[in-house]
Design a protein around this nucleic acid. Sequence first.
DNA 1: CTCTATGCAAAACCTTTGCATAGAA
DNA 2: TTCTATGCAAAGGTTTTGCATAGAG
Lengths: 149, 149
Amino acid sequence: MSKGKEKRLFQNFLLENRFKRSVQRKELLDIFLNTNKHLTAEELYRIAKKKNPSIGFATVYRTLKLLCASGLCRELKLDDGITRYEHLYGHGHHDHLICTKCGSFVEVFDPEIEKLQEKLSKVHGFIPQKHRMELYGICSKCQKEEGRR
Amino acid sequence: MSKGKEKRLFQNFLLENRFKRSVQRKELLDIFLNTNKHLTAEELYRIAKKKNPSIGFATVYRTLKLLCASGLCRELKLDDGITRYEHLYGHGHHDHLICTKCGSFVEVFDPEIEKLQEKLSKVHGFIPQKHRMELYGICSKCQKEEGRR
DNA sequence: CTCTATGCAAAACCTTTGCATAGAA
DNA sequence: TTCTATGCAAAGGTTTTGCATAGAG
């Protein structure tokens, strides 16, 4: 559990914006903080439903928006078209390495690439704001399983 | 016009796969080849509708799938969730620089970044397959307009 | 009390599919 | 003739919205 800082951050976010606390928001935050970093809305909904069968899909989406607004969470849209929500707080910017076999994620960061990305933007006259980079490949676990067949 | 090579490629693709030619496919291919490189399905539909008001959305989507299968076209899913279709034939791999004000695209390619991306994958035990990189920023045109206000 | 949050169902999107008919080979 | 392609409408999948009611402050 723990995750005290994140919980406090969300509390403050709610207070500062005249939002109210609720059981659902608390439960969803707990699940979000204690689950893998790349949940879909549907996964979050299913987990929440086990604890609290009356929860609605709309609440999940609305709460995810709040989590993003508070800075705890970021939307991640991958090529499969399904939106995932990843932890943001305490993480710096990072990119993703994604296994095309098993779907596992690795967060990566390469300062050299970052520098070159910025340079590339400027060369084309852009003021860089943000970027996304996803590297797709086969992870070592899946490579071994491949070999076994 | 011209674009003879692309048209022939698509012809051959249809023949080789026992698909048939049709007026709609011809019209859609023409529009696709002669329009900006990052059409949405809706944009293509609207343009096609002007020439041929009876055309259906389903035909547009089905034809776009064929264009992708033939190698002329690639699906591009950006953060806004709308799928765009870009020209692929005769282009090598490239990434995108996207203006967050006006939405304009620039295609970019940086061999140094490519090399580092490959290295980064391998360091994490991945066999690299493909990647996507989008750099978001403000293009020079929008910077000037910003200044004018 | 007042105003926000919730759950439900309906709507909004974008994309795909089923089906009868038109059209290519 | 035999298949495939088309257009329409309906259905899918994901996310958002309207509304009456429940609940927080």
